[in-house]
């Protein structure tokens, strides 16, 4: 909870907190992105591959999104059995090979290369500030809707998308 209370500007502090901020971002995405209606009992956030958050992201499960309790899944790869509303693709996972383009799934990754690999949102670090890059085309293709408010504060980039 404390993590989420922190304003984004606090992210400028020690690098250990960088993922706390990124965890907050993951939660905040639920406020600006709309998923298509499907009946789920939980709002699933999946961490695929390497887990940089560790325990710091766990408090997110106490919160809700779209009136659904948030549930964390740590996966090695994206599978069809486990649906993820948000899939954080850890470094070291080839985005292309993981099948990023599942319907109704937001893919979040690190660095601009992630977009190039077909990811939808990438955390980019600039001047010690975490910025977002969004592959809007890819995001829209997967059936998600993004709030214009979010678009105002992100950098929209052209990237590969699995056609």
């Amino acid at each position: 909870m404390c993590l989420l209370c922190l304003p984004p500007s606090y992210a400028e502090s020690p690098p250990i907190d960088e993922y706390k901020i990124k965890a907050g971002y993951l939660f905040n995405f639920t406020k600006f992105i709309t998923w298509s209606e499907e009946s789920f009992e939980t709002f699933n956030i999946c961490i695929v591959g390497n887990d940089p958050f560790g325990e710091s992201i766990d408090p997110i499960e106490q919160r809700t999104a779209f009136n659904l309790p948030i549930k964390l899944f740590r996966l090695t790869a994206i599978s069809k059995e486990q649906h993820c509303h948000i899939a954080y693709i850890g470094t070291g996972v080839n985005a292309k090979s993981t099948g990023l383009h599942n319907k109704n799934m937001l893919t979040v990754g690190e660095e601009a290369a992630f977009i190039a690999q077909g990811g939808m949102i990438a955390f980019v670090k600039r001047q010690d500030k975490i910025k977002l890059q969004i592959n809007l085309k890819c995001l829209q293709k997967s059936g998600l809707k993004i709030s214009a408010k979010l678009l105002e504060v992100v950098e929209i980039v052209e990237g590969y998308c699995n056609d």
Binding site: P7, S9, N28, F32, K129, K149, L150, E152, V153, V154
Partner: peptide, 15 residues
């Protein structure tokens, strides 16, 4: 206020 929600949340002074 509406327009600035995201800017506030994402700390985007410019916007």
């Amino acid at each position: 206020a509406n327009r600035s929600t995201a800017a506030l949340i994402y700390n985007d002074k410019k916007v």
